[in-house]
């Protein structure tokens, strides 16, 4: 396999760098300041280990100051507001959110928070999770989930991506829920966290199908892009216009209409 050798090297590099980061006086901020992924304790699943690997990849690849250990929070707990980035993964029926949880999530997402939903069904996307999530989202916001178009900035926020894959790749679309002008909720049905899951000594815990390690890399890239989108919104749309804007300011050229989709808070 022509790709095997580079990925073996990469794993070794990852392991040594990760160990170095863990033991060499980390520069991680206090919990409230550094980015920390908080997974929602809904439906009994515990994604702590997968998200740790996700956070470590983000630290390795980007300049984002991210805390290494994600934390679990219950949506009805006010501590949810300490974490603007939430993750909700599962493959079982999430059950019914409490009214307090619905209010908290609505407040959270309406004021700048982001929720990434991950369907972690093993062989395929879990239908009960999917139905439960859609049902509960309807209680939080009236608008339905919608397909995120491939031209959206989330597919360019760091890496150039063609499609959203995870441990599986059977769902071709990323879905999202707009709050104001940006997607406050992003939903992948391809078990994104499953592609990140690691064994205690560095190996990956789950096989990625059907694309193997190449697909796993694409999953990591999607993971980076999702977090980058939560932090930068439409920043990469700006870049298509930056040079034109700079030229405009030097002279009297009238800028063309702003073609980037607006991404603003409500």
């Amino acid at each position: 396999m022509p790709l095997a050798r580079p990925f073996m090297l990469r794993r070794l590099l990852f392991a040594t760098t990760a160990l170095g980061l863990l033991f060499a006086a980390p520069t991680v901020h206090a919990q409230a300041i550094a980015l920390k992924i908080a997974w929602l304790k809904v439906g009994g699943a515990d994604q702590g280990s997968e998200l740790t690997a996700w956070a470590q990849e983000i630290r390795l690849r980007t300049s984002i100051d991210i805390a290494p250990n994600p934390v679990g929070v219950r949506p009805e707990d006010p501590t949810i507001f300490q974490y603007p980035l939430l993750y909700w993964g599962g493959d079982r029926n999430p059950g019914k959110l409490t009214p307090e949880a619905v209010v908290h999530l609505r407040q959270h997402l309406s004021t700048g928070g982001t929720l990434i939903i991950d369907n972690t069904g093993k062989a395929e996307a879990s239908q009960v999770f999917d139905a439960g999530v859609r049902r509960e989202l309807q209680r939080i916001f009236p608008q339905p989930l919608q397909r995120v178009p491939p031209s959206h900035v989330v597919f360019r926020s760091f890496y150039r991506l063609d499609r959203p894959v995870g441990r599986r790749a059977d769902s071709h679309d990323l879905e999202g829920l707009r709050v104001g002008a940006h997607f406050a909720v992003l939903y992948t049905r391809n078990d994104l966290a499953g592609a990140f899951a690691r064994l205690p000594f560095g190996g990956f815990a789950l096989t990625v199908v059907p694309g193997g390690e190449n697909q796993r890399e694409q999953a990591f890239r999607l993971g980076v892009n999702l977090v980058m989108y939560a932090l930068c919104l439409d920043y990469k749309d700006d870049h298509t216009h930056v040079m034109q804007l700079l030229r405009y300011r030097r002279g009297t050229q009238v800028p063309s209409a702003h073609t980037a989709p607006e991404e603003e808070e409500p």
Binding site: I33, L35, T62, S63, I64, D65, P84, G112, M228, A230, L231, C232, L233, Y235, E263, E264, E265
Partner: peptide, 14 residues
């Protein structure tokens, strides 16, 4: 670097 501080500042300015 991208951060919550830059994110909310950008949202404010935009």
């Amino acid at each position: 670097h991208p951060s919550w501080d830059s994110r909310f500042l950008r949202t404010h300015l935009r």
